[in-house]
């Protein structure tokens, strides 16, 4: 009996939290253009939940909600045929008739990368725009990844002593 009560409390707490803490100041950009959300993203448990339909459309993704299934299916377009199911209540959340998912779940499986400009500003970067990734040793033989220089403008100057 104790177990049942505890479980119920946790679920209610999550649902109440989702209603109670809308944060309207997440700015998301794609190709340097700000995404206009009709419903604000929500910050919950250290992560951003974003309206799937609005952002999915901006990213060129197909969003389907199969009848009778407690899930949302997100599919890539173009060359990517990947489809990712998000379970409602676990990976996706319906709040006031708007379905949300974690920002990462809507971007990373489809090759997009998230660049955080600030805690409330993110840029979604298409994989084809990214410089190729590599790892090379520095003069002390410490491996450095190209990604280690994120957050700074970087001039890669390739030269040889000859």
């Amino acid at each position: 009996m104790t177990k049942l009560i505890l479980t119920t409390c946790v679920i209610l707490s999550l649902a109440a939290g989702l209603h109670a803490s809308p944060v309207s100041n997440l700015k998301v950009s794609i190709d340097s253009k700000l995404v206009a959300f009709s419903t604000s993203p929500i910050f919950k448990n250290g992560t951003w939940l974003v309206p799937i339909e609005t952002l999915g459309k901006q990213l060129g993704l197909k969003v389907e909600m199969p009848d009778g299934e407690e899930m949302v299916v997100i599919c890539g377009s173009g060359e990517s045929e990947l489809c990712v199911p998000l379970q409602l209540g676990e990976d996706a959340f319906s709040i006031d008739n708007v379905t949300y998912s974690k920002l990462e779940d809507l971007t990373e499986p489809f090759g997009f990368e998230i660049y955080k400009t600030t805690e409330t500003e993110v840029e979604i970067v298409r994989s084809e725009q990214l410089a190729p990734k590599f790892t090379l040793p520095d003069l002390d033989d410490t491996p450095k990844r190209m990604q280690d220089f994120r957050g700074k403008k970087t001039l890669l100057y390739i030269w040889g002593s000859w």
Binding site: E123, Q129, A131, F134, R150, K152, T154, L155, I158
Partner: peptide, 24 residues
């Protein structure tokens, strides 16, 4: 010559500019 292969370089010096988000 990892960079030479990645960027198909035939000579040096070459410059490549990458922004804060890692974009070419």
């Amino acid at each position: 010559n990892i960079l030479g292969n990645l960027f198909n370089l035939k000579a040096i010096p070459y410059g490549i500019m990458i922004d804060e988000a890692g974009r070419l």
